[in-house]
Simulated scan of single mutants.
Amino acid sequence: MSFRIVDLAETGSTNDWIADHPEDGLWVRADRQTAGRGRRARAWTSDIGNLFTSTFAAPQPGEGAAPQLSFVAANALLDTVARWVPRERLSLKWPNDLMLDGMKVAGILLEGHARGVIIGVGVNLAHFPEGTERPATSLAAAGIAPPSAREACGTLAEAFAAHRRRWREDGFAATRADWLAAAAGIGKPIVARLGNADLTGTFEGLAEDGALLLRLPDGALRPIHAGEVFTLGDQA
Rank of each mutant, 00 (worst) to 15 (best):
M1Q: 12
M1D: 03
F3I: 00
F3G: 00
V6Q: 07
T11K: 04
T11P: 06
T14Y: 01
I18V: 10
I18M: 04
I18R: 01
I18P: 01
D20P: 06
P22M: 02
G25R: 03
G25M: 15
T34E: 08
R37S: 05
G38P: 07
R40N: 11
R40M: 14
A43E: 15
A43L: 08
T45S: 15
T45V: 11
D47M: 06
G49Q: 11
G49L: 04
G49M: 10
N50F: 13
F52M: 10
T53C: 02
A57P: 02
Q60H: 07
P61I: 14
P61T: 12
P61G: 07
E63T: 15
G64Y: 02
A65R: 08
P67Q: 09
Q68A: 01
L69S: 03
N75C: 09
L77G: 04
V85G: 08
S91W: 02
S91M: 09
L92Y: 06
L92I: 05
K93D: 00
W94I: 08
P95V: 12
N96R: 10
N96E: 01
D97H: 04
L98Q: 11
M99R: 06
K104I: 13
L109G: 05
L110W: 09
G112W: 13
R115D: 11
V121Y: 04
V121T: 06
G131F: 12
T132R: 09
E133V: 11
S138G: 08
A149P: 01
A152G: 05
C153I: 01
G154W: 09
A157V: 02
A159S: 11
A159K: 07
A161I: 14
A162D: 15
R164V: 01
R165M: 10
W167I: 10
E169T: 15
T175F: 04
T175S: 00
A177E: 15
A177S: 12
D178I: 01
G185S: 07
G185W: 01
P189F: 08
V191M: 05
V191Y: 02
A192Y: 00
R193V: 14
R193N: 14
G195W: 08
A197D: 15
T200A: 12
T200I: 13
G205Q: 02
L206P: 02
E208Q: 09
G210F: 06
L216F: 13
L221Y: 10
R222V: 10
I224E: 07
I224C: 12
H225N: 15
A226Q: 15
L232F: 05
L232C: 12
G233D: 06
